[in-house]
Simulated scan of single mutants.
Amino acid sequence: MKWFTNSIVGKTVEKKSRCLFSNIPFGKNVIGLYLTVFLFLFTAGGSLAQTRKYFGQFNQLQSYFNPALTGYEGSVVRGLVRNQWTGFEGAPQSFFLSAELDPMEINAVENAALLGNTAAGLHVIQDNFGPFRQTEMLASYGARVRISRSTNLRLGIAANYHHIRLDGNNLTTEQANDPTVNAYLNQFATLQVMDFNAGMAFTHQNYYFSYGLQNIARGRVYRGDAFIKERPFVSIFQTGFRQALSSKITVLTNMMYRIQHDLPYNLEMNVKLMAMDKFWLGVGHRANYANSYHFGFLMSNIRFGYAYEIPVTSSYLIPNPTHEFMVSFFLFRKGGVNSEAGTLIW
């Protein structure tokens, strides 16, 4: 038995299983496919390796990780594309699209971010990698209570629908009769899972603290081919701070820590310098996995962000970088980045 750790489509997969690929040639055109097959290695008991989504700009997707942060930045539509291992044919890709609405902003209420008490969001993610296509839809609802003039306590819940499609025709193995994979060779399998997330947060224009819990039902509500037996609880801690150094320079820091019993801990952080409330430069680090470099700019109600990510030496698998592009459009925003309506960037 041997442990495998791999980074695929912004995911970590760590599994205990037999090595199926010890004699396979190491070629540029096939290495990506070989590595994606690791996603499908089973233990003797038949449980599938768990996966974890990674985003270099995780701080821009707060409400996806914790529904309590739905509407924290107001009514906004976001889109993100993540291209991993650029340069390899069939390299993994992730697509993210979300919309969040604050009814108080729709009604043009002044200081809606402070006076409003509900918000709703819809998030859609699609991952394509090797034989797998995963589509996730998440509907979130957040409620908030004003503690002080500038501080809110937020609670949130989300329903999560996950559709996974496996194309067994794309599996590659030197042991066609290996029981860990031959049940799905040369055929298709689909799995649909319904689950729930919840969270709470303390938010301010200049800081936030939050805790979220994912997979509350542990994947037990499903239909289709049960090639994932159970989904573990995931605890997510997020925090961020912003501090003005001068009238033109602001420092922004964000951190996320994830705990999942069947995977190593995940710690991510980034630091950005924002100039004149118009553009920013930053660096990020995912502990034991990758470093990233960020830049972006604000133009009226539009925000654009880019992250360039490269693996650290300890997890070096493929030298090709990852590119991540993000665009946000704020629907009803009035005032500047630091207006009382809220903040346009974390």
Rank of each mutant, 00 (worst) to 15 (best):
E340K: 03
N215Y: 08
T151L: 08
M255R: 03
S140A: 06
L317S: 07
L41N: 07
S210R: 03
A287E: 09
Y293M: 03
G336E: 08
N270C: 10
I147C: 09
L171S: 04
V145I: 12
F304V: 11
E324L: 00
R303P: 03
F209S: 08
N215D: 15
R18S: 02
Y306M: 07
L61C: 10
F4E: 05
V251Y: 02
N177Y: 00
N320K: 05
G32N: 13
A44N: 11
A143N: 00
Y208C: 07
T180R: 11
G224R: 12
W280Q: 10
A341H: 14
T5D: 09
K334N: 04
I259M: 10
R220E: 14
P311L: 11
N186Q: 06
N197A: 15
G224K: 06
A99Q: 10
G282S: 09
V77N: 04
T51P: 09
N270H: 11
L39S: 14
L171R: 02
L122C: 03
W85F: 13
L122F: 13
L281N: 11
L69N: 04
P103Y: 01
K2F: 10
T250K: 12
F196H: 08
V193T: 15
N160H: 12
L317R: 01
Q192V: 13
F330P: 02
Q175M: 06
L191V: 01
T135P: 04
N177Q: 13
K248H: 04
F96M: 02
Q134C: 01
M194C: 12
L39M: 13
I164G: 05
V124L: 06
N169A: 07
N169H: 05
Q192N: 14
W85Y: 12
T86P: 06
R144D: 07
N177G: 11
Y34K: 14
L331A: 03
D262G: 00
F329A: 13
V30F: 10
A198I: 05
D102N: 01
Q214S: 15
F88G: 10
T190P: 06
F202G: 03
F237V: 14
I24T: 09
N177S: 12
L48M: 05
F227I: 14
N266L: 12
M276N: 15
L166W: 04
P103R: 01
H162R: 11
Y184W: 08
G32P: 01
I345D: 14
V13H: 13
P25D: 05
M326N: 13
M1Q: 00
S75G: 02
P103Q: 05
R18V: 12
I302C: 00
F237Y: 14
G90E: 06
S292C: 11
M137G: 12
T51F: 04
S314K: 15
